[in-house]
Design a binder for these strands. Structure first.
Lengths: 133, 133
DNA sequence: CTAACTGTTATATTTATAGTATAACAGATG
DNA sequence: CATCTGTTATACTATAAATATAACAGTTAG
């Protein structure tokens, strides 16, 4: 699993870490039950602090994306994922709403917006790079 | 224009302000050329500081959503909006990507995700409340 | 002209978050 | 026993967010 971080980004490192792992799970590059590197080794790998990785892992654990065993270390959730809770639906809508509103302001119609979402969906599930042809 | 802020939210006040104004423009509640309240009056109205409003206005101006005249005050962009720049497209995709990835992890298929986007799109353009029936 | 308003700028302070740096603890493993 | 795990605690630095005053320059209504 290759982690790409932008240390100059305004999105926190631990958030970027969470997003990359979640995207890895969505794409299938990270399989259920697959082990993730320890907080220390991953931190050393990408040149950041132990606690930054630990924060990402802890949050992912709280949301049910990973499991943390004292002995085995960290593994991708082998059982069923959290699923569609009401809390999640509200949070998802709150995240999408301002993005859609801006798209409307910039002249995108419904078809164009849906096309973008469709593209991103298949890009993720078919495991393509961001700047794929 | 009614502004609703959540002071306990983790999203900054100036960001919430920007989102509400952009959503107002997308819904048509804010018409092109329509005047917006002055930084001082709006700040007093919603009980926050002058500079917080000014930050939101300045950013909205930089992105072309509003115009600021020394005399007339602040008005909703009367001319054409920014439109589809390459910068915007990349920023939009970067915002959508983690949201879509999480949706996939939680078991949403493409049709379900598109339905959510379609719903939000029409909710915004038809000017409905968040918890509309 | 004066007073009241506009956006703008400058400065200082407080608060919270992000990230780093060490260190130690408890359990598992070879 | 030495080494790895996650976990916790503490302290520090840097940055962003928000507030608090104050002042400046231009506009506008009385």
């Amino acid at each position: 699993m290759i982690i790409e971080l932008d240390l100059q980004s305004d999105t926190p490192i631990y958030t970027q870490l969470m997003n990359q792992i979640i995207e890895g799970m969505a794409s299938g590059r990270l399989q259920p039950g697959e082990p993730l590197p320890s907080v220390r080794s991953l931190a050393a790998d990408i040149g950041i602090n132990l606690h930054t990785v630990n924060k990402a892992y802890t949050l992912l654990k709280q949301e049910g994306f990973i499991q943390i065993h004292r002995q085995k270390g960290v593994v991708v959730q082998p059982d069923a994922l959290p699923g569609m809770t009401s809390d999640y639906a509200h949070r998802r809508d709150a995240q999408l709403r301002p993005i859609i509103a801006e798209a409307i302001c910039r002249g995108m119609n419904e078809q164009q917006l849906l096309a973008v979402v469709r593209d991103l969906y298949s890009h993720i599930t078919t495991n393509e790079r961001k700047d794929a042809p």
